[in-house]
Structures are given as C-alpha cells and as structure tokens.
C-alpha cells in the first residue's frame, strides 16, 4: 500500500513538473493557432515591397508553408474520406475521386 501511494505521489509530481516545464513551449500555443491571411500578398508584391527584404521573405515563407500545410490537410482529408467510405461499406463502382474532390474543397 505504501509503495502504491509513493508511486502515485511520484507520478503526480512528475506530471505536474513536466506541465510546468512545458508551460512556455511554443507548442502550448498551438490550440489558439491562427492561419496567416495571405490574400493580400499579391497586392504587396505589386506595391513597393522589395523581395530581398526580410519582412517580405518571411511573409513569403509563412504563406508558402501555410499553402503546403493546407495541401497536406486536403490530402489527409481525401485519404480519410476514402478510408471511411471503405470501412462503412459504401462502395461505388465509379466516382471515388469525386468524393475525394468534395472533401478537398
């Protein structure tokens, strides 16, 4: 009984300590993640912004990553959609890709 209570105490302290240590890890903010709004980027390109300026480079990098992330999400959604369809037994003779496209948009 004493061993169990010691183990519980050690586990609880360990969890509490690790939570404290990670409190300011960037991944802590992931829940409130916000996508960059890159719709204004083409206008900025045409305006006086210099492509060698670190601000412009950072924005291009961020938007490229966001687009890459979206494409990845869409692929995963497509995969998930077709897997779900297979699991549920709703096989169609044709149009499998149509379903994926719908998920993709």
């Amino acid at each position: 009984m004493k061993t169990i209570s010691t183990a519980v105490w050690v586990l609880v302290s360990g969890i509490a300590f690790s939570a404290l240590a990670n409190a300011h890890d960037p991944s802590e903010h992931a829940a409130k993640g916000e996508s960059p709004d890159c719709s204004a980027m083409p206008d900025m390109h045409q305006a006086s912004m210099n492509a060698s300026d670190p601000v412009m480079q950072a924005m291009m990098k961020k938007c490229a990553e966001a687009m890459h992330g979206n494409a990845k999400d869409q692929k995963q959604d497509q995969k998930h959609g077709s897997a779900h369809k297979d699991d549920s037994g709703h096989h169609q003779t044709s149009g499998g890709h149509d379903d994926g496209d719908q998920h993709g948009h």
């Binding site: 996508s35 960059p36 966001a66």
Partner: peptide, 8 residues
C-alpha cells in the same frame, strides 16, 4: 497578421 500567425 501574416508574420504573427502561429501555425498549428
């Protein structure tokens, strides 16, 4: 907004 958006 673009520079400060924290990705997922």
């Amino acid at each position: 907004q673009i520079l400060t958006a924290r990705d997922k």
